[in-house]
Design a protein around this nucleic acid. Sequence first.
DNA 1: TTGTAGGCGTTATCAG
DNA 2: CTGATAACGCCTACAA
Lengths: 363, 363
Amino acid sequence: MTESVWKRFQVKGGQLRLGHRATIEDVAAHAGVGVGTVSRVLNRRQHVSQPMRERVEAAIAELDYRPSQLARSLSKGSSDTVSVVAPHITRPSVVARIDSCLAELNRVGVVASLFGVFNRTQFDQVVDALSDRHSTRALVVVSIPVTGAQVSALQCANVSLIGLDVKVTTSDSVFIDNVLGGAMVGSHLIAQGYRRIGFVGDVDSGNFKFTSSHARLRGLKSALQKGGLRLEPENVKFCEHGTSSAKECAMGLLMSNRAPDAIFASSDTGALGVLSAATELGLRVPDDLGVVGFDDLEMAEVVGLSSVSQPLSLSGAIVAERLIKRLTRQDAHPIHTLLDLHLVKRASSSKACHLANVLQPAN
Amino acid sequence: MTESVWKRFQVKGGQLRLGHRATIEDVAAHAGVGVGTVSRVLNRRQHVSQPMRERVEAAIAELDYRPSQLARSLSKGSSDTVSVVAPHITRPSVVARIDSCLAELNRVGVVASLFGVFNRTQFDQVVDALSDRHSTRALVVVSIPVTGAQVSALQCANVSLIGLDVKVTTSDSVFIDNVLGGAMVGSHLIAQGYRRIGFVGDVDSGNFKFTSSHARLRGLKSALQKGGLRLEPENVKFCEHGTSSAKECAMGLLMSNRAPDAIFASSDTGALGVLSAATELGLRVPDDLGVVGFDDLEMAEVVGLSSVSQPLSLSGAIVAERLIKRLTRQDAHPIHTLLDLHLVKRASSSKACHLANVLQPAN
DNA sequence: TTGTAGGCGTTATCAG
DNA sequence: CTGATAACGCCTACAA
């Protein structure tokens, strides 16, 4: 249907236009009206009589006309798309946020385009490109700290900025208290009787200037101090995000002669690697080694991993909701939302309930 | 720095333009040349003298001018962005593909924007919006079958289409043989001595018209037939994608009085749920129950799950590479790439090597 | 080599 | 209520 229509209506001013889709001008000509009128019915504006409206709508349908968003943006001086820029789109925690955010936006008919960036430079480029009143109406930045210059460039272009999992002081943002999260883990491990506690965090390989891993470490450290323990520097490791590298990292920790009796991994993905390392070394979890992760992914429950739960989906949904509000009315001051955290205690850190074993990687 | 520059240069034809970023005209005026010249240096074209070029470049730098991609696309009648549209961006297998595709594109300086869609309707809308010579130059469709009408609408708009994990007959595509994958699992399970084999697949909740789950089932079925076994209809279940729903589904299967002695889950995510169900029911894996998944995610190795491995990252990389080729020279006929599959045998389906246990979900 | 004018598809402003 | 026409920012003939 569609393609045949295009083939039929290729005439404009008597000239053949191969493969071109109809323009507003074609519609106007076809309906025998001016372009202004077509534009009015397109934008559902007042001051257009019913019969005229119908005639135009018929022409639109016949020509299978769809307005060019591009030309529209250029003319209006503003776009009606929203963009999301995020790092590490392979991480379950990140995609969970993004997914719920997009879902919520889609629910009200807003399609957002997502930009995955792999390092700071790319992030800066994308933000720069988006700092143009024509290109996007709103921007959601996930996890990456935004500089003051970027913020002002964006507001100068009239694009509303919202931080998801990152605080943006001069704009809306939704985030958690990572220091608190780390502290929760620390006091839990102490309460469970662990004494030599270690930490496995993520290095910021893309140079994004992430802070969460370090914040969680600070929280852990302060909780330990409060409990009269100290975090041995040799038991603190940072490695690439991921199960296998965390496993390697944990192996190093666990094979030392003053090995930790508990490890806090700053992500569940990493914690899984720690569990795997423990299994490989014949350590029983939670007796010989306590393990706690972060994010409380679905996998954590299946595997019996204790973890700090944060409302990932909710965070995305809140951002979407706020975004939609910003799109309509322009409230004054920025709104910051600090989401709640809670520790989900499972077998991996509860000496009471004995944990069987991790599945053996064999073949 | 940036914002101060914007504040300084707001004059155009003697008029104040608040917050506007410089246009090509501003640059021309500032350099004391015509817009044509500026355009030429912008697009690195010939026929512009060195001193002139330098003067223009200086003006560009001073005004912190960045051309509007939007206006450029409208004027040229073509865009230089590439888009990716994908369903289920929460699934590890999907993001692995996308991630490597985007990474490869970024490596050569191409930033792609990703559209996550939640059902067929949204997919159709996005494709429709993208079927505009102005909006995008190339489109990667992940996993979703594209209709003939959509294909021709796209090529009519001159946007090159590439299928990732889906065959597009009239265009480039990279995919696997899902029937073969299912068959590999079937013969493996038979060889391991399993006799009552079950299947847990994904329902197509977004109505995308996916085929892979059913294709894998067909493969399984044919392998069983070849081995003189049959797949009992009561042992075939389709449920929402995900660990927890697969677990529920498997519980149903395993608690029936004619329960299967092996289950093939059409994804590793689902297989994890099956493992969890087995643990909960006190079934020993692989003795009482064999389990095989699909995709060979990182998690599979950790957990000792047998799985059909497909080159997820590679698929994305190949698509990116092909895309770049299409962007430069326009080769004639479509190239289809069928990627290899191989079964990774681990503890979960190898009666020989006894598998300890899954971690107990306890608290 | 360089400047000028017309066009890309819309919206918005103003006369009618 | 409706129809021209000038922007929007850029590219590209064409003319100088």
